[in-house]
Design a binder for these strands. Structure first.
Lengths: 204, 204
DNA sequence: GTCTATAGCTTGATAGAC
DNA sequence: GTCTATCAAGCTATAGAC
């Protein structure tokens, strides 16, 4: 994919660095991963890396944006935005996502460690995470309100509260799973989701 | 309190260092806090600090253990162990704890950042957190089973699953609260707890 | 017990050759 | 684009004086 003769995906080295950074930030956290580590695994030196990304923060942000780019939802008719799914599909996707994550420890570590690190207002990724949580929450509230309107939510379920619960469960279950790989993230999440619904999710 | 003529609480400097360490680890995380920082705020130099605690890891572990020592549950008849509470009191204490934490951002940050950091098997506090989660989970399962036996749990509530949910909610809600101080940790937790019970908790 | 001094290492970033 | 060389700053930890 090119624009004005320049590859907007960047060249091979840039991509290699980005993917390596994603894996290593994931495995060790942002602060504990050095530019030298990433550069070495990418087959270059750290000043070589800094040619492509002027600072470590710039590399982090580029890696997070790249991650979001790759994270489409595959439906029968192509790739759909998560935010465009209807209420039920949203919840199904959440549970399916938890199951898929259990195969990618590194990625779970990245978001678990970054979402706590980035809690500090002066962290380079703070704004990114504030926006991410706020949009996820808005999407979930919208989906739950749809379900409520269709009489598919149990009595007493409050969309805003349930949305906060869902996000908290995903984050918290990830910690438990990282501490003990026997934890059934998807099962526990499905258990909560079904406690919200009058008609349970179809088993995956 | 002395044993064999030696104060088992250590002397004043040791306590000062321990309390300072707890506050600073809490405020900035373990990896981001240096021995020099802690020492300076304690009124000594960092080699002075290392006289009392041989390594930074030893200081972390001592600070965590001190935290647990201080963390008794105050009941009408003195201090009780959390694990000794009955099912209902356990859940009430959980909600009350979330409300109390909202006044101590530093402490929430400490446990949020450490519980993720310590997810790595080679982290100094890994064993501590594995034990902490496992005992908390066991206590909650026991309490929920008590409630189930007393017909106080709603139909379909599975104690092991609900225990995992409760722990995950506490961790996850802390992240949301750290990102956005308007998040009502105690309210959201109470909402979930009441969805488990046939008879709601008395309002605090 | 606490200090000064320092060893030995790692970090993010820059300068300048090629 | 990528390198070598280097900087200034930070870190944990140790040696040895007092």
């Amino acid at each position: 994919m090119t624009v004005d003769g320049r590859s907007i995906r960047g060249d091979a080295t840039r991509q290699q660095v980005l993917d390596t950074a994603l894996v290593m930030f994931a495995r060790q956290g942002y602060r504990a991963t050095s530019l030298r580590d990433i550069a070495a695994r990418s087959g270059i030196t750290h000043p070589g890396l800094l040619y492509h990304f002027p600072t470590k923060e710039a590399l982090l942000m580029a890696a997070l944006e790249r991650r979001d780019e790759v994270d489409g939802v595959e439906e029968d008719d192509g790739v759909v935005e998560f935010a465009d799914l209807d209420g039920r599909a949203l919840l199904e996707h959440l549970v399916a996502g938890a199951a898929k994550n259990a195969a990618k420890r590194g990625l779970v570590e990245l978001f678990a460690s970054l979402s706590v690190e980035a809690t500090a207002p002066d962290h380079p990724a703070h704004a990114y995470f504030v926006a991410r949580y706020s949009s996820l929450r808005a999407t979930l509230v919208r989906g739950l309100e749809e379900l409520a309107a269709a009489q598919e939510l149990r009595q007493g379920v409050v969309p805003t509260v349930a949305a906060a619960h869902l996000i908290a469960l995903m984050d918290g279950l990830q910690i438990q799973w990282l501490l003990d790989a026997d934890t059934d993230m998807a099962g526990a999440l499905a258990g909560y989701v079904n406690s919200l619904l009058t008609e349970p999710l179809k088993a995956p």
